[in-house]
């Protein structure tokens, strides 16, 4: 068994309107950051897990994401393993 540290980023799919992101973007504009073009709010998970090898860790993380961490109807994700 080896210990892996994973970082999971979850964001709304491009096609889904992000009301939170919109609001933050407008706030940045009103603070004078006129150059801010786009902003999406997401979630970030730090996961520490034990697995046989990197492949097994990746498989487990993918499962975790699709079962629980991510609602794939509206969200997309990226996993970074170290």
């Amino acid at each position: 068994m080896k210990t892996f540290n994973a970082k999971v980023n979850v964001t709304l799919k491009k096609s889904v309107l992000d009301p939170q992101g919109q609001t933050v973007l407008e706030a940045l504009h009103s603070l004078g950051y006129k150059g801010t073009e786009n902003l999406r709010v997401g979630k970030y998970f730090e996961v520490t897990l034990n697995a046989q090898d990197e492949n097994s860790a990746k498989t487990q993380l993918k499962e975790m994401c699709e079962k629980l961490l991510v609602n794939t109807v509206i969200e997309q994700y990226e996993v970074h393993l170290s």
């Binding site: 709304l12 889904v16 309107l17 992000d18 009301p19 939170q20 609001t23 609602n71 109807v73 509206i74």
Partner: peptide, 17 residues
Amino acid sequence: LLEAGLLPGAMLANRSL
């Protein structure tokens, strides 16, 4: 019901947040 897949679609935060 949405999360369980018994109904299609998903919920976002209210647009007023």
